[in-house]
């Protein structure tokens, strides 16, 4: 009754995705510092290994070896729960992303998607909506005013930007008639990328993704000039590492989601006309998806070192008075277009 091959497939896939996510998150820190250096006309990390390529390992080792301090009046249990929950929710979204076409070993199909849910998009929204808990719990448990302020900022920002994000996704759902992420990706086969049909939706989703990841120019929860370190002020050692790591994992996953929803996922124009064997096609499709993901990770960093930080009232005004009306308009326009034109 229980399909052991299926379980084995999924376990292998989950382990691979887990390791790849962590590796990409680690090397994103290196990438971020190198890109910042290029933009600011500096050299960047260059001590550990050739071109500083071992810097993430050195950073990771340092995180493990630093003293782990828990403040005296902190809530011990929640203080540990906060960062754990944050990294858990950051890793959870990768379950629904179709990473490429299936591999075939004889008759056995090895699907590159952990869970092909028929409510995949809603699962994404659910994980995004519980993503703020880690920060909130961690910030509150620190028993520190700055940490609490950072946590409050983070959660109100996340709630505010969830709404236009959901609306932008609704217009995609209207276009593709499905909540299943693989179907949405396969719909964009060829060059029918959603970004050409939903440019406004893409812009809204991109801005919301920045806000949900707490990335600059929306990094107010940890703005060091006002709040010291924001919600992770009291954290040290690997618990701080978890918070920082989760931010980079979030960035990686958001880039993957943006590629899947708006840029055709693992498809590229002419993929099917090449007549490759299924396994080669699978490898090519993975490379295509990761190319798109790396571009968006680079874009995240490019924006961070280019734009200054928003003020908090500007952030809220942008979310509620600009993005939400725009996204409602986008949904209505999409509906009208589908009803009357198509």
């Amino acid at each position: 009754m229980i399909d052991w091959w299926l379980i084995l497939d999924k376990v292998i896939l989950i382990v691979v995705i887990f390791v790849v996510s962590l590796a990409i998150a680690a090397y994103s820190t290196y990438g971020e510092r190198k890109i910042a250096a290029v933009i600011q006309d500096r050299i960047g990390p260059d001590r550990a290994g050739p071109w500083g390529i071992l810097q993430p390992l050195a950073d990771g080792g340092k995180f493990f070896l630093k003293e782990d301090i828990t403040p005296k009046d902190a809530d011990k249990f929640l203080f540990i729960l906060g960062p754990s929950l944050f990294i858990l929710t950051a890793l959870m979204t990768s379950a629904i992303i179709p990473w490429g076409k299936s591999f075939y070993f004889g008759d056995h199909e090895f699907s590159l998607q952990v869970a092909n849910l028929n409510v995949g998009i809603l699962y994404l929204l659910a994980v995004v909506s519980i993503g703020g808990y880690g920060i909130m719990i961690g910030g509150w448990a620190s028993n520190n005013k700055f940490a609490l302020l950072g946590a409050l900022r983070a959660s109100s920002q996340m709630i505010s930007y969830e709404v236009p994000m959901g609306m932008a996704i609704i217009s995609i759902i209207l276009m593709s008639n499905s909540l299943n992420l693989r179907e949405i990706v396969d719909m964009q086969q060829g060059f029918h990328w959603n970004v050409f049909y939903q440019p406004l939706g893409f812009l809204i989703f991109l801005i919301c993704a920045f806000a949900e990841c707490n990335r600059a120019p929306f990094d107010l929860p940890e703005s060091e000039s006002e709040l010291i370190g924001g919600y992770h002020t009291e954290y040290s050692s690997m618990k701080l590492g978890f918070f920082l790591f989760a931010e980079y994992i979030n960035m990686f996953i958001s880039s993957a989601i943006i590629s899947c929803l708006f840029f055709g996922g693992y498809h590229f124009p002419g993929l099917d006309s090449l007549n490759m064997s299924p396994n080669i096609a699978a490898i090519v499709s993975i490379c295509v998806l990761f190319g798109k993901i790396f571009f968006f990770i680079f874009f995240f960093m490019w924006v961070r070192w280019t734009l200054p930080r928003f003020r908090y009232d500007q952030l809220m005004r942008l979310g509620w008075k600009v993005l939400i009306p725009l996204s409602i308009f986008n949904v209505l326009a999409t509906g009208a277009w589908l009803t009357f034109v198509k």
């Binding site: 809603l122 699962y123 909506s129 519980i130 808990y133 946590a151 959660s155 709630i159 969830e162």
Partner: peptide
């Protein structure tokens, strides 16, 4: 599945965040 996910989005994701907010404040 639809009910389960909506339940999480609405209750765990939206309403309880506001609860937590109040307790924290």
């Amino acid at each position: 599945q639809f009910l389960a996910i909506t339940h999480i989005i609405v209750y765990a994701g939206a309403i309880m965040v506001l609860f937590l907010f109040t307790v924290m404040l």
